[in-house]
């Protein structure tokens, strides 16, 4: 079985982002970039399935500028077999990413597609679901457990009320939640080995996808800042303030 994993290059989760003074977007100069944490979990899950001999080949794909090669390299070092970069310097919108993925899916015919549930820059939580719809696949989103057997995948999903399990016919899409696994670190020898693994570069036009804009970002602003309050000295003072000043209890 083949697995296709989509990874996105994003601002590292530890960076406190700043809005550009002209409100056109986020300051990205000299900011640390990393693989989206949910995508790391997606790569890890594919590697574990390969270690269990359920998956025989892992293809990792990213859509973005040339720099995304770094995140693909990381995925290769973690255990993916080959990489595809769909190179574009445009700001690709989720529906476009989903269409590009669908085109790659059609070419590669994987049995399982694994993606993150959410990219921590756009916080969209939609690309996987859109891709699945376009490809006519069932989806197990927000997965905290994945069991592949007998042409099906059972996915335990983190939902608002607790956990839900669904059984999906393969091929299927899975999006990862935080507790699916704990990603490993790439070892130095594997980082070296990854450099020799194949990486193909395509343009969106090669896949017949135009980057039609479905929305325009008019401005990006900082949220209202919360004024820091006061320190209270004791639990008594806290209760008094909550009762008599804030009047919330």
């Amino acid at each position: 079985m083949k697995a296709l994993v989509a990874v996105k290059r994003v601002v590292d989760y530890e960076v406190k982002v700043r809005v550009k003074p002209d409100n056109s977007g986020i300051e990205l100069n000299n900011v640390k970039m990393s693989m989206n944490p949910f995508c790391e979990i997606a790569v890890e899950e594919a590697v574990r399935l390969k270690e269990k001999n359920i998956i025989s080949e892992i293809i990792v794909v990213s859509m973005g500028d040339k720099e995304s090669q770094k995140q693909l390299q990381t995925a290769l070092a973690l255990g993916a077999d080959r990489a595809i970069l769909v190179e574009s310097s445009d700001d690709l919108q989720p529906l476009t990413v989903a269409k590009l993925l669908k085109a790659i899916y059609d070419k590669e015919q994987p049995d399982l597609v694994i993606m993150g549930k959410q990219s921590i820059d756009g916080d969209n939580n939609q690309t996987g679901q859109m891709f699945a719809a376009l490809a006519g696949l069932p989806q197990g989103t927000f997965a905290s457990k994945v069991d592949v057997a007998d042409g099906k995948v059972d996915v335990t999903r983190e939902i608002d009320g607790g956990l839900q399990t669904v059984s999906l016919n393969l091929p299927a899409l899975v999006t990862t939640d935080l507790r699916l696994n704990e990603p490993r670190y790439a070892s130095l020898p594997n980082i070296m080995k990854a450099k020799r693994k194949p990486m193909e570069t395509l343009a969106p036009a090669d896949l017949g996808v135009s980057g039609k804009e479905h929305f325009k970002t008019l401005k990006v602003e900082s949220p209202p800042v919360r004024e820091a309050g006061i320190k209270v000295e004791s639990v008594e003072e806290l209760v008094d303030k909550l009762k008599n000043e804030a009047k919330v209890i």
Partner: peptide, 16 residues
Amino acid sequence: RPVYAGNAIATVESLD
């Protein structure tokens, strides 16, 4: 809508 964990608020115009 909030982006970047609510560290920025984006105003977007839908063209659809």
